[in-house]
């Protein structure tokens, strides 16, 4: 069994072999350049530029790997600004002992994600850390996108609709179930996916409709709403009955005593849109596989300024507080 050893990061032959025979051969030798920097052509002057680091245990899970997560996460960060993602960088920090086969699977899932999102991985770096100094693999990706339309940021007003492109909490639940020995009779997968095509389609059809977008990753949907309403002269109210949540996600959340609204997603965007376009946008979203369960989940309100609320099934209201503690399984 081949594993990562310190020499894979030493700058010598082993490292060159790793880069040419494995990384470049999977991610694409035409795009990944051995030069110190990639030279790129950009069609416009207004660009979006982002970076994010990825750490996750386990590194492979139903619906993705840390590799596809890194590509999709960076693509989505660009897409929710309204930019078209073009180029991605990829820095790998490998822990000594990582199996080469595992690394291969992760690289393949990166390449597949990049192809699907139509982005090119153009530059990269590889470092090796001693056994025990890392969690198998860390990935940092930076991304560049271009604005063909103005950034999708407009004045949010009471009456605007809150939309999500599908079911809530799938990714975080998949991971937590793995860590807590919970299994599924029919299976549950991470929603890890690139959203740039779906978002682009909405902008193309309704160029003036979107007031704000954010991918609901760590901290979940509730955290996005808290961010939007912070210090604002409006509030946000979700309707509990309208939330698209899979039974499996509800089940895990109940068993572990956590709230799906705070669970991470990796393929969900929360959109605040002008309510005149709500139905049309839902229609557009539903044309995409990543949007088939799209739903209107709430509204921007003139009540509860600066806060996010949820209207429960029985018609009561409660606040959606800012997430404070990491969600741990609890007995009470």
């Amino acid at each position: 069994m081949d594993i990562i050893v310190p020499a894979h990061g030493s700058g010598g032959k082993l490292m060159n072999d790793l880069i040419t025979n494995l990384i470049q051969s999977i991610l694409g030798s035409d795009s990944i350049q051995l030069d110190d920097a990639a030279s790129l052509n950009l069609p416009t002057q207004a660009i979006a530029f982002t970076t994010d680091s990825y750490t996750i245990t386990p590194i492979e899970f139903s619906g993705g790997t840390i590799g596809s997560l890194a590509i999709n996460g960076t693509v989505n960060d660009l897409a929710v600004m309204g930019a078209t993602p073009l180029y991605i960088s990829c820095a790998l920090i490998l822990e000594e002992g990582l199996e080469i086969e595992t690394l291969k699977r992760i690289l393949v899932s990166m390449k597949e994600a990049a192809l699907k999102a139509n982005v090119a991985i153009v530059t990269g770096d590889t470092k090796v850390v001693p056994k025990g100094k890392g969690d198998s693999i860390y990935i940092n990706t930076a991304g560049i996108g271009v604005f063909t339309t103005p950034p999708q940021r407009r004045q949010i007003n009471p009456g605007d609709s809150i939309i999500i492109n599908g079911t809530i909490g799938d990714h975080g639940t998949t991971i937590m179930a793995l860590r807590n020995n919970l299994t599924f009779s029919k299976g549950l997968s991470s929603d890890c996916a690139a959203l740039n095509h779906l978002i682009h389609d909405v902008i193309r059809n309704y160029p003036e409709a979107i007031k704000f977008m954010r991918d609901a990753t760590r901290g979940g949907v509730a955290s996005v709403l808290n961010e939007i309403t912070k210090n604002a002269s409006f509030g946000a109210t979700l309707i509990e009955e309208n939330l698209p949540i899979k039974d499996e996600v509800r089940g895990v959340a109940e068993i572990l005593g956590i709230d799906p609204l705070y669970i991470a997603n990796e393929g969900k965007v929360v959109m605040i849109v002008d309510s005149r376009y709500t139905d049309g946008i839902i229609h557009v979203l539903k044309q995409h596989p990543e949007g088939k369960d799209a739903a209107v989940i709430g509204q921007i309100t003139d009540q509860f300024h600066g806060k996010a609320y949820i209207e429960t099934k029985i018609g009561g209201k409660r606040i959606l507080p800012v997430l404070i503690e990491e969600q741990l399984p609890r007995i009470c």
Binding site: A177, L182, T183, F184, K186, K246, D247, R250, E254, I255
Partner: peptide, 25 residues
Amino acid sequence: CLAIPMTVKKIEGSKAIVESMGVEK
């Protein structure tokens, strides 16, 4: 005390496999 209703699917010795909303434990 957080405790939730589940349905017994299987019994194996001192353990049972219980299920709720597609989640098994």
